[in-house]
């Protein structure tokens, strides 16, 4: 995945079954962000792999004051990349089991 300066990782072990999973997001390189970033730390949140859209969650972070409006897309892309990886891993596990 592209290095967006924003890192997203699992905040819990993926059991491969739950639709809603805990993720943790933090800024690794604030120079890659357009807006001024206030050092706030890692943001933990739950994400529904089946129903939710990464860009919508990113927009909620912007509206909550965690990121500047101009960085919403970057945050959304970072979440999308991680979600795609989680889904890919799950599919691979299912294929391997079959």
């Amino acid at each position: 995945a592209e290095d967006t300066g924003v890192r997203v990782e699992l905040a819990e072990e993926d059991d491969g079954k739950k639709a809603s999973i805990a993720l943790k997001l933090w800024v690794e390189d604030h120079k890659k962000l357009k807006g001024k970033y206030k050092e706030s730390g890692a943001i933990e949140f739950t994400f529904d792999l089946e129903k939710e859209v990464p860009e919508v969650v990113a927009q909620e972070m912007v509206e909550s004051g965690l990121f500047h409006e101009s960085d919403g897309k970057t945050v959304g892309k970072s979440i999308r990349d991680r979600v795609a990886l989680i889904k890919w891993r799950r599919e691979r596990t299912v294929s391997a089991a079959a």
Binding site: R7, W26, E28, D29, S40, G41, A42, I43, E44, F45, T46, V57, E60, M61, E63, S64, G65, L66
Partner: peptide, 27 residues
């Protein structure tokens, strides 16, 4: 506490906590 909770109007909860130093990329 260093942990803060930010609740969005849509009801989503964001929990903000310090990032461990070891996980930060070296600049």
């Amino acid at each position: 506490s260093a942990t803060a909770q930010v609740v969005h109007s849509a009801g989503r909860r964001f929990i903000v906590s310090p990032v461990p130093e070891a996980r930060l990329k070296e600049q």
